[in-house]
Simulated scan of single mutants.
Amino acid sequence: MRESQSLVAETLSATVDELYRKYGVRKTVHALVLVAWKRCRMKNHISDLSNRMRRDIGLPEIEDARGEVRPPFWDIRV
């Protein structure tokens, strides 16, 4: 059991060098940029929240193009 657990992790530069030799510069850089871009997109954005959710967490409501705050369809009483 000890022998199987004693694997040594390579350094980052060694790993990138291995990827470069195996796949080439373009594919390696493309993969790194893609991973960085996906991580940036994983952040939470409040711009997608509805006015109801914005009110629930204490943020100001978003106005529509006419400058009015419209209630969502479930708040309209017929």
Rank of each mutant, 00 (worst) to 15 (best):
G67M: 01
G58E: 00
G67K: 00
R52P: 00
L49V: 07
D64E: 04
H45W: 06
D48C: 10
R55N: 03
D56T: 08
V69A: 00
I57F: 04
F73R: 14
L49G: 02
L59N: 02
K43R: 10
R55Q: 03
P71T: 11
P60C: 03
R70N: 08
L59F: 04
I57T: 07
I57V: 14
S50N: 03
G58F: 01
L49E: 05
A65V: 14
E61M: 10
P71G: 05
R70I: 11
L49M: 15
R54D: 00
I46A: 15
D48V: 15
D48K: 07
N51M: 00
S47V: 09
P71Y: 06
E63N: 01
F73E: 08
K43L: 12
P71I: 10
S50T: 14
E68L: 14
R52T: 15
I57C: 07
P72W: 05
D64L: 00
H45L: 14
M53S: 09
N51K: 02
M53R: 11
A65G: 06
S50M: 04
K43T: 13
S47T: 10
R52M: 09
D56E: 15
L49A: 05
G58H: 05
E68R: 10
H45I: 14
R55H: 06
D64T: 03
A65E: 13
M53D: 13
P71F: 09
S47A: 14
K43W: 05
S50Q: 05
K43C: 12
G58K: 01
E68W: 04
R54P: 00
P71M: 14
G67P: 02
I62M: 09
E61R: 04
R66G: 07
R52L: 11
M53W: 06
H45G: 05
N44R: 11
D48L: 08
E63Y: 05
R66N: 15
S47M: 08
N44G: 11
F73G: 03
I57Q: 06
P60N: 05
L59D: 12
R70F: 03
R66W: 06
H45K: 11
D48Y: 12
R54N: 00
E61Q: 14
F73S: 10
D56A: 11
R55A: 07
N44L: 13
S47E: 11
K43G: 13
R52V: 13
E63L: 02
R54F: 04
I46M: 14
F73K: 03
R54S: 02
P71D: 05
N44M: 13
R66E: 14
P72R: 06
L59M: 08
R55Y: 06
K43M: 09
N51V: 00
P72I: 15
A65K: 07
L59V: 12
V69C: 09
R70G: 01
S47G: 12
A65P: 04
I62P: 03
R70S: 04
R55G: 03
M53V: 15
H45N: 12
G58S: 07
S47C: 07
N51C: 02
A65T: 10
E61W: 02
N44F: 14
R54E: 01
I62H: 05
G58I: 07
A65N: 09
R66D: 15
V69W: 00
R70W: 05
G58Q: 01
E68P: 02
L59S: 06
D64V: 04
